[in-house]
Design a protein around this nucleic acid. Structure first.
Length: 857
DNA sequence: TTCAACCGCCAC
DNA sequence: AAACGTGGCGGTTGAA
């Protein structure tokens, strides 16, 4: 079984091949330089209290024995890496370890105390390999902060880390998912939980000191810990410790901050001691943060109706057998942490030749449209605009809508900002303050490359840039951006162009026709239509096609980085984002065909049907919704008939059908989706948008009707779904009074930030979030539970099927062709029953087998 | 040169 | 008083 799960690792176990892939840069002159510094530096490294430094084989072997001796307790680890830009690159097959640190408890004495520092550079760069058996021992548990990153880096050395105890980042996110993303760094968490960490440390020390049979080494370690380490609880960020103000040539000190590279910190004498302290503190903090967060998770009961004074408060469980957040961690999120790293390492096979083909195709298609559009722009301008940039929103705004006044800016929860002191960037520069946008004047200059080498008066040689002037057409703005500028998005441009194919010309036609030149109007519509085509191709090319080519590895697989960093508990994906691949209708180049199964394998793509609506139905226990799901068939058609009594009558008389199986011949009566297509479309939009808290105004805008009519339709929806209305009311009340909302399983999302500012905009946003999170987050709970079940299923392992990706309500697996059918049945079964209990209504999963992602949809 | 604000668009 | 939730990301632009 194991052989299927880790065949990827089996491939990379060949160390020579690893080195050739990730160690290329270690042969550069830069490395040689630092290596020479390093050899002198390590001679006079100061001995630091509590830190044991490992720099040779014997030392390594000795500490490994100590680590193994303490195999009953988890060990916290952290790594520092080189050869990777952590901001833009994923750590799969890229980046390697320069050093690692561990902390296994205050009493675990590695010789000079409980902090362990392992050097893995230059002549010591294979030291980490001595720890292979230790890392791969699944019985020895390890704690990490952002496990995925460290696991992959260590994996790059051919070591497949096992024995996952927990990830402090995931724990912190589960405890409170509502913080800013950067607040989950080790440094920030150590500050946020400073008091609790102190308490945990003190308590732990007291407890250990009381332990009978302490060895001399342990006593010594505890003494060092007490004397030197107990009071160090704050992790300072690397930038704060190592950042220096840049010195200018004239001797003055600049505000710009400079930071040494990791290589420099590791190799240069002025940094090394602080560097070792910094690195070893990481793992120690991770260790105590883990204890702290576990404790907090266990203390966070999920029953908000119970009070701590209730006698059963500490043991009471919800319908899913969950008492506290700690239960959710141990039941689901812990496994999820492991699963995500597996998905990342596995990656997805890419048909590179297909991607290259569609890239060429897209580039060709774009060119023509671009030429057409710019040619037209030229007809409206006096100066040369051959360098008009179609990707520039500003230029488009200027061209169509200038001159115009900007709209009054509305403050939303995102744009509102307090008058704070000057903020500075990490490199010391002052953070720029948002400039008020100004009205658009009729003519505006844009900077362009001086491709014609124009030499200006009083200049001897041509400057690099020159100006292009755009004179606005002065069309009345159709909508505005949040900052008050006229928007030039798809909607606005589409209104200008109209439907060119049907010769129903849009607003810009009027603009020219009213000046007595209808042909010019038609030309303009055609041109804008071309612009829209151009833009849609550009998006596909630049957001999907090109990045996919760049990010696919040499073996033809693309490894996205999957994070749990949403406030609702959904996953997100980066480098590349595989969760927003174009849907079938918009996928004119069939980008999804690029994601294929590897040789001899098939993909299984399994989708939940109407997952969020089912979650809503379950949580509200809404009879009408549950009923509609139980009866089956087209859910939106069922919604239509409950909303419109006249349609209901037709159904009862048999003059109208909800669904018809075409294999039985021609339908004896018309179908709802045909006869009442418009109504069904409305019902569909309603079904989806109610969960988002969309209001009548929003619907009116979408449907282009007045607010009253929209409200009437909404009322019709709610009339049969009183339970939903009541549920929403309750959820809003809790949000307003207690500032949180909870998902299906009971995870919390805190909403204080929306209610602190007593503005309507904030509060309304908070209320919508409160409504949406239980549903969106509940759906996430279900899919995560299903993933854990699938991951743990022995039969699927035997069949060789592995998870590749989760796309919110869809799971993708890959495995041997001959086992695909068997695997599909199991996947479907597991997904439809993610919990021990049944929900108020069944979950339905549609699963397909195919050679690529496109085929499976 | 670097970075963030802004706009816009992709998914579920 | 605002008007649809959760994300990632590319391009342009101007500031430091």
């Amino acid at each position: 079984m194991i052989k299927f799960r880790f065949c990827k690792f089996a491939q990379i176990n060949n160390i020579a091949s690893i080195k050739s892939r990730i160690g290329g840069s270690s042969k550069t002159p830069e490395y040689d330089l630092y290596r020479s510094y390093y050899n002198k530096t390590i001679e006079d490294v100061k001995e630091q209290p509590g830190v044991t430094i490992v720099r040779n084989v014997n030392e390594a072997k000795r500490v490994i024995e100590i680590l193994k001796k303490y195999n009953k307790q988890p060990h916290a680890w952290d790594t520092e890496t080189i050869d990777i830009d952590v901001k833009s690159e994923n750590p799969i097959n890229r980046g390697k370890l320069i050093c690692a640190s561990a902390f296994a408890g205050p009493e675990v004495n590695f010789g000079n105390g409980p902090r362990l520092f392992i050097d893995n550079f230059a002549q010591n760069s294979d030291i980490i390999m001595l720890f292979k058996d230790y890392f791969e021992d699944e019985k020895i548990l390890k704690i990490w902060h952002n496990y995925g990153f460290d696991r992959h880096i260590i994996g790059n050395h051919g070591i497949n880390v096992q024995g996952f105890f927990g990830d402090t980042m995931h724990m912190a996110r589960l405890l409170d998912p509502s913080k800013q993303p950067q607040e989950y760094s080790l440094a920030k968490l150590s500050i946020a939980h400073e008091e609790e960490i102190k308490q945990v440390k003190t308590k732990r020390l007291e407890c250990l000191l009381k332990k009978p049979n302490l060895t001399e080494e342990e006593k010594q370690s505890l003494q060092i810990f007490k004397d030197h380490l107990l009071d160090i609880n704050l992790k300072t960020s690397m930038k704060q410790i190592f950042g220096q103000n840049k010195e200018l040539k004239n001797g003055e000190v600049s505000k710009l901050k400079v930071y040494p590279k990791i290589l420099q910190m590791h190799c240069l004498p002025q940094y090394i001691n602080q560097w070792i302290e910094y690195s070893t503190l990481d793992s120690e903090i991770t260790y105590f943060l883990c204890l702290t967060l576990k404790d907090l998770l266990n203390k966070t009961k999920i029953f908000y109706n119970s009070k701590p004074t209730d006698s059963d408060y500490h043991t009471k469980k919800n319908e899913f057998g969950i008492n506290c957040l700690g239960d959710i961690y141990s039941k689901y999120w812990n496994s999820l942490g492991e699963i995500l790293t597996e998905l990342e390492r596995e990656g997805m096979q890419v048909d590179i030749s297909h991607v290259n083909n569609i890239k060429i195709q897209a580039e060709q298609d774009m060119k023509q449209y671009e030429q057409n559009f710019i040619k037209w722009v030229q007809t409206t301008q006096e100066g040369d605009v051959s360098q008009f940039n179609c990707s520039s929103t500003q230029q488009l705004q200027q061209l169509f809508f200038a001159p115009c006044k900007k709209q009054q800016v509305k403050k939303t929860h995102q744009t509102i900002k307090e008058d704070e002191e000057d903020e500075y960037l990490s490199d010391g520069r002052k953070k720029s303050i948002r400039k008020e946008v100004e009205d658009l004047s009729e003519i505006k200059a844009f900077q362009i490359d001086n491709i014609h080498q124009i030499v200006k008066e009083n200049q001897r040689s041509p400057l690099k840039y020159t100006e292009m002037y755009i004179k606005g057409l002065g069309i009345a703005p159709l909508s505005y951006t949040p900052s008050g500028m006229p928007s030039a998005d798809y909607n606005a441009l589409k209104q200008l162009a109209g439907d060119v194919e049907k010769q129903q010309y849009g607003l810009i036609y009027q603009h020219f026709a009213s000046k007595g030149d209808p042909q010019k109007g038609i030309d303009a519509c055609v041109a804008i239509n071309d612009l829209l085509e151009l833009k849609s191709i550009e998006v596909l090319l630049h957001t999907f096609i090109i990045p996919l080519i760049e990010l696919t590895d040499t073996s033809g697989r693309v490894h996205t980085s999957i994070n749990i960093n949403t406030e609702t508990g959904r996953l997100s994906s980066r480098n590349p984002n595989l969760l927003n691949q174009p849907a079938l209708e918009k996928d004119r180049y069939k980008i999804r065909k690029s994601f294929v199964a590897k040789q001899g394998c098939k993909l299984i793509v399994a989708d939940y049907g109407q997952l969020e609506l089912r979650v809503l139905a379950h949580m509200t226990k809404c009879k009408a919704m549950i009923d509609a799901f139980l009866k089956g068939g087209d859910f939106h058609s069922r919604t239509v008939i409950t909303m419109f009594p006249s349609i209901q009558e037709e159904i009862e008389k048999g003059e109208l059908l909800i669904e018809w199986d075409k294999s039985k011949g021609k339908a004896p009566a018309p179908l709802v989706k045909d006869k009442y297509a418009a109504e069904r479309r409305k019902a569909k939009v309603l079904n989806f948008s109610i969960a988002y808290g969309k209001t009548a105004t929003g619907f009116a805008k979408d449907w282009q009707c007045d607010i009253k009519e929209a409200q009437k339709t909404i009322d019709a929806w709610f009339a049969q779904r009183k339970e939903v209305e009541q549920w929403q009311y309750n959820v809003r009340m809790i949000a307003k009074s207690q500032f949180f909302t909870q998902t299906l399983l009971g995870r919390y999302r805190y909403l204080e930030k929306y209610f602190e500012q007593q503005t309507r905009s904030y509060i309304n946003h908070g209320l919508r979030a409160a409504i949406n999170t239980p549903i969106q987050g509940g759906a996430a709970d279900i899919v995560i539970a299903a993933m854990v079940k699938i991951y743990k299923n022995e039969t699927l392992k035997d069949l060789g099927f592995k998870l590749l990706l989760q796309v919110h309500d869809e799971l993708i697996l890959e495995g041997p062709e001959e086992n695909a059918q068997a695997a599909l049945m199991i996947v479907k079964e597991l997904m439809e029953n993610p919990f021990e209990i049944q929900l108020e209504l069944p979950l339905e999963v549609d699963a397909k087998i195919g050679n690529n992602w496109y085929e499976c949809k």
